[in-house]
Protein backbone atom coordinates (compact mmCIF):
# COMPACT_ATOMS: atom_id res chain seq x y z
CA UNK A 1 0.00 0.00 0.00
CA UNK A 2 1.33 3.41 -0.98
CA UNK A 3 0.62 6.60 0.94
CA UNK A 4 -0.70 9.75 -0.72
CA UNK A 5 -1.68 8.36 -4.12
CA UNK A 6 -2.73 11.01 -6.67
CA UNK A 7 -5.74 8.92 -7.70
CA UNK A 8 -7.22 9.22 -4.20
CA UNK A 9 -8.33 12.75 -4.93
CA UNK A 10 -10.72 11.54 -7.61
CA UNK A 11 -12.09 8.91 -5.24
CA UNK A 12 -12.89 11.23 -2.35
CA UNK A 13 -16.57 10.28 -2.68
CA UNK A 14 -15.65 6.74 -1.62
CA UNK A 15 -15.49 8.15 1.90
CA UNK A 16 -19.28 8.14 1.72
CA UNK A 17 -19.39 4.35 1.59
CA UNK A 18 -19.95 3.57 5.25
CA UNK A 19 -21.64 6.62 6.72
CA UNK A 20 -23.14 8.35 3.67
CA UNK A 21 -25.25 10.58 5.91
CA UNK A 22 -22.17 12.10 7.50
CA UNK A 23 -20.35 12.44 4.18
CA UNK A 24 -23.33 14.13 2.57
CA UNK A 25 -23.52 16.61 5.42
CA UNK A 26 -19.82 17.31 5.07
CA UNK A 27 -20.07 17.77 1.29
CA UNK A 28 -23.08 20.09 1.53
CA UNK A 29 -21.16 22.26 3.98
CA UNK A 30 -17.91 22.03 2.04
CA UNK A 31 -19.53 22.98 -1.27
CA UNK A 32 -21.51 25.82 0.29
CA UNK A 33 -18.24 27.23 1.61
CA UNK A 34 -16.86 27.44 -1.96
CA UNK A 35 -19.69 29.54 -3.39
CA UNK A 36 -19.49 33.26 -4.07
CA UNK A 37 -20.54 35.14 -0.98
CA UNK A 38 -19.08 38.09 0.89
CA UNK A 39 -15.83 36.63 -0.46
CA UNK A 40 -15.49 35.64 -4.11
CA UNK A 41 -14.74 32.10 -5.28
CA UNK A 42 -11.33 33.36 -6.32
CA UNK A 43 -10.54 34.72 -2.86
CA UNK A 44 -11.78 31.52 -1.27
CA UNK A 45 -9.62 29.41 -3.58
CA UNK A 46 -6.56 31.46 -2.58
CA UNK A 47 -7.45 30.99 1.10
CA UNK A 48 -7.83 27.26 0.42
CA UNK A 49 -4.41 27.17 -1.23
CA UNK A 50 -2.81 29.00 1.68
CA UNK A 51 -4.42 26.73 4.27
CA UNK A 52 -3.51 23.66 2.23
CA UNK A 53 0.14 24.61 2.54
CA UNK A 54 -0.08 25.25 6.25
CA UNK A 55 -1.72 21.88 6.89
CA UNK A 56 0.63 20.39 4.25
CA UNK A 57 -2.05 18.27 2.63
CA UNK A 58 -0.90 17.19 -0.87
CA UNK A 59 -4.47 16.49 -1.97
CA UNK A 60 -5.58 19.96 -0.92
CA UNK A 61 -2.54 21.62 -2.53
CA UNK A 62 -3.31 19.85 -5.81
CA UNK A 63 -7.03 20.60 -5.66
CA UNK A 64 -6.67 24.26 -4.68
CA UNK A 65 -3.90 24.90 -7.19
CA UNK A 66 -6.38 23.84 -9.88
CA UNK A 67 -9.17 25.86 -8.26
CA UNK A 68 -6.99 28.96 -8.22
CA UNK A 69 -6.13 28.59 -11.92
CA UNK A 70 -9.76 27.94 -12.80
CA UNK A 71 -10.91 31.00 -10.91
CA UNK A 72 -8.45 33.15 -12.84
CA UNK A 73 -5.56 33.53 -10.40
CA UNK A 74 -2.03 33.49 -11.73
CA UNK A 75 1.19 32.13 -10.28
CA UNK A 76 2.22 35.49 -8.83
CA UNK A 77 -1.00 35.70 -6.84
CA UNK A 78 -0.86 32.07 -5.79
CA UNK A 79 2.76 32.39 -4.71
CA UNK A 80 1.91 35.48 -2.66
CA UNK A 81 -0.85 33.49 -0.92
CA UNK A 82 1.63 30.70 -0.14
CA UNK A 83 4.15 33.22 1.20
CA UNK A 84 1.42 34.78 3.35
CA UNK A 85 0.54 31.39 4.84
CA UNK A 86 4.20 30.54 5.33
CA UNK A 87 4.93 33.90 6.94
CA UNK A 88 2.12 33.40 9.45
CA UNK A 89 3.35 29.89 10.13
CA UNK A 90 6.90 31.18 10.53
CA UNK A 91 5.71 33.99 12.78
CA UNK A 92 3.76 31.51 14.85
CA UNK A 93 6.90 29.42 15.33
CA UNK A 94 8.96 32.49 16.13
CA UNK A 95 6.62 33.89 18.73
CA UNK A 96 6.90 30.58 20.59
CA UNK A 97 10.49 31.62 21.11
CA UNK A 98 9.14 33.81 23.90
CA UNK A 99 8.07 30.61 25.63
CA UNK A 100 11.64 29.38 25.37
CA UNK A 101 12.94 32.70 26.65
CA UNK A 102 10.46 32.53 29.52
CA UNK A 103 11.42 28.96 30.32
CA UNK A 104 15.11 29.79 30.30
CA UNK A 105 14.63 32.99 32.27
CA UNK A 106 12.71 31.10 34.95
CA UNK A 107 15.69 28.91 35.78
CA UNK A 108 18.37 31.49 35.17
CA UNK A 109 20.01 33.88 37.63
Amino acid sequence: MAYYEEEHLGHFADMGQHRPDLFQKFMAWYQACQEDGALSRREKALIGLAVAHVIQCPYCIDAYSQSCLESGSNMEQMTEAIHMASAIRGGAALIHGLQAHQSVNKVSM
Binding site: S40, R42, L69, E70, S71, G72
Partner: peptide, 8 residues
Protein backbone atom coordinates in the same frame (compact mmCIF):
# COMPACT_ATOMS: atom_id res chain seq x y z
CA UNK B 1 -7.36 23.26 -16.70
CA UNK B 2 -10.75 24.88 -17.29
CA UNK B 3 -11.24 28.59 -17.93
CA UNK B 4 -12.44 30.85 -15.13
CA UNK B 5 -15.80 32.62 -15.23
CA UNK B 6 -15.85 34.76 -18.38
CA UNK B 7 -17.11 37.96 -16.75
CA UNK B 8 -14.52 37.69 -13.97
Amino acid sequence: FLPPAQSL
